[in-house]
Simulated assay, not measured.
Amino acid sequence: MKKLITVIAASLLLGSSVFAEGYLSANDLAVGEIKANQNEEDGFVINASAEKIVVIEDKSKESVMCDGEKIVNRLSTKGSGNAKERSVSFPAKSGETIYIYAQSSGKSGSRPVHVINADGAEIAEVAAGSYTETKDVKAAKVKVPANGTYTVYPTGGTLYIYMIKVAK
């Protein structure tokens, strides 16, 4: 019986390390300014500095829907980002998909959102649609090519991030 329990426990531990699935939801973040890198659950890190802050905003009067979930807060990059500032980093495994629920702060046009690996190589560039008053935010999807740390950031101005999911 002890061998069976040991085998089952080992299988569960090994199976849980095969995928880095996780998510960051703005609903889980405290409203206010972030002025230094901030570690969150599931290995997510909000990258910010005193010069290039990120702000978690309460938008409960203008909530959005992301994959059926009502989101009342948003992460505002307050401008363009890069690998080290105004960005979000997280672990992901080969074969998983990154779902980015975000919108451009502009009311017209879209804004580029970059996904890079730990070496700084761009894996994908997706477009975040423009901000509108009635929102059903669709996810931009990026397939993960290899195990590692990935970073999401905007260029061209502010990005509102509502949720980032990593899933098989």
Rank of each mutant, 00 (worst) to 15 (best):
Tyr153Leu: 09
His114Cys: 04
Lys135Thr: 06
Thr149His: 08
Ala139Cys: 07
Ile123Cys: 10
Glu125Phe: 09
Val144Asp: 06
Lys143Glu: 12
Gly129Phe: 09
Pro145Trp: 00
Val113Gly: 06
Glu122Ala: 12
Pro145Gly: 05
Thr158Leu: 03
Ala146Pro: 07
Tyr150Asp: 01
Ala124Lys: 10
Pro145Ser: 02
Val144Gly: 09
Thr151Tyr: 10
Tyr131Arg: 15
Pro112Tyr: 11
Asn147Phe: 02
Arg111Thr: 12
Leu159Thr: 00
Asp119Ser: 14
Tyr131His: 14
Gly156Thr: 02
Ala146Asp: 12
Lys143Val: 11
Glu133Ile: 10
Pro112Ala: 15
Ala118Lys: 13
Ala124Cys: 07
Pro145Ile: 00
Val137Tyr: 04
Lys135Gln: 15
Ala128Asp: 03
Thr134Pro: 04
Glu125Cys: 13
Ser130Val: 01
Val113Asn: 02
Arg111Ile: 14
Lys143Met: 11
Gly157Met: 04
Ile123Glu: 01
Gly120Glu: 05
Ile116Trp: 00
Thr134Tyr: 13
Glu125Pro: 01
Val142Gln: 08
Lys141Ile: 09
Tyr150Ala: 01
Pro112Leu: 03
Ala127Tyr: 13
Ala139Ile: 10
Lys135Glu: 13
Gly148Met: 03
Lys143Ala: 15
Tyr153Trp: 10
Val126Ala: 06
Ala127Val: 00
Ala146Val: 05
His114Val: 05
Asn117Ser: 12
Ile116Asp: 00
Thr158Cys: 01
Arg111Trp: 06
Ser130Trp: 04
Ala121Lys: 14
Thr149Val: 15
Ile123Gly: 06
Thr158Glu: 14
Pro112Ser: 15
Lys138Phe: 02
Glu125Asp: 01
Pro154Val: 09
Thr132Val: 10
Thr134Lys: 14
Val115Cys: 07
Pro154His: 08
Asn147Tyr: 04
Val142Met: 08
Ile123Met: 04
Thr158Lys: 09
Lys138Asp: 12
His114Ala: 08
Glu125Thr: 15
Glu122Cys: 03
Pro112Trp: 08
Val152Gln: 09
Ala146His: 14
